[in-house]
Simulated assay, not measured.
Amino acid sequence: MTSFDDRERAFEATFARDQEMAFRITARRNRLLGQWAAALMKLTPEETDSYAKGVVQADFEEAGDEDVIRKLVGDLTAAGVETDEATVRRALDERLVEARRQLMEAQ
């Protein structure tokens, strides 16, 4: 029975580590996405940092990426930046690749 228990604990540890990495990648992606949007809105470095943190926080409103996409499209449109949902989704995908790369290099 101990072999089974050991395997179960190892599986649980792997699962927890994978979930933590997925969370970190998503948070990094959202921060990079916030920085991208802030550059389009021509925010100052201080405003950019604050805005990027706000984008990370927006992801906690509901499951999935729709809350982040809605925030960015709304903020960019309000700032007078010509954009649409497809552009934001493409930027989100690009930042996901960059976030993964950054975290893999950091390990």
Rank of each mutant, 00 (worst) to 15 (best):
A79I: 00
R70N: 09
S50G: 11
M41H: 07
A13Q: 12
W36Y: 05
Y51R: 04
T2L: 13
D65K: 05
D75W: 09
V56Y: 06
E105W: 07
A10E: 10
Q57A: 13
T44Q: 01
R70E: 00
G74T: 14
T44P: 03
M1F: 09
D5S: 13
L40E: 10
E20C: 04
E66W: 09
V81R: 10
R31L: 03
P45L: 00
D67K: 11
A37L: 07
A37V: 09
T26V: 15
Y51W: 03
G74C: 09
V73M: 15
E8L: 11
R100M: 08
E61C: 02
R90N: 08
L32C: 04
D84L: 02
T87C: 03
T87N: 06
M41C: 07
R70V: 02
D84M: 04
T14R: 15
D84R: 06
I25M: 06
P45F: 00
L32P: 04
A22I: 02
K71Q: 07
E20H: 13
D84G: 15
T14F: 12
G64H: 09
E47H: 06
A27N: 04
G34P: 11
A38G: 09
A37C: 10
V55H: 05
A39G: 06
E47I: 00
T44M: 01
Y51V: 03
T77S: 03
R90I: 06
R31V: 00
D67M: 08
G64S: 06
P45R: 01
A39N: 09
L40R: 14
K71N: 06
Q19E: 12
T2Q: 14
G34F: 00
A37M: 07
L43R: 15
R70G: 02
L43F: 15
G54S: 01
E82M: 06
E66D: 13
R95T: 15
E85K: 14
E47G: 13
D59K: 06
V68W: 12
R90F: 08
E105R: 13
L32N: 05
Q57D: 10
L40Y: 10
Q19F: 05
D93T: 13
V88M: 07
T87A: 08
V88Q: 10
M104P: 00
V81T: 07
I25C: 06
A106M: 12
T26P: 11
D93A: 15
T26Y: 12
G64C: 04
E20A: 13
V55F: 04
N30I: 01
D75C: 09
V55S: 02
L43K: 14
N30R: 10
E105D: 10
A38W: 08
Q19D: 08
R89V: 11
D65T: 02
A16P: 03
D67I: 00
D65L: 01
M41D: 06
I69K: 14
G54P: 03
Q35S: 03
G64R: 07
F60T: 12
A16D: 05
A38M: 08
D6Y: 10
R95W: 06
K53N: 05
R100C: 04
M1H: 12
E82L: 05
M1L: 08
F15S: 09
D75E: 11
T2D: 15
I25V: 14
A91P: 13
T44A: 03
V56P: 05
R28D: 00
A91E: 13
L103C: 02
T2E: 13
L33Q: 00
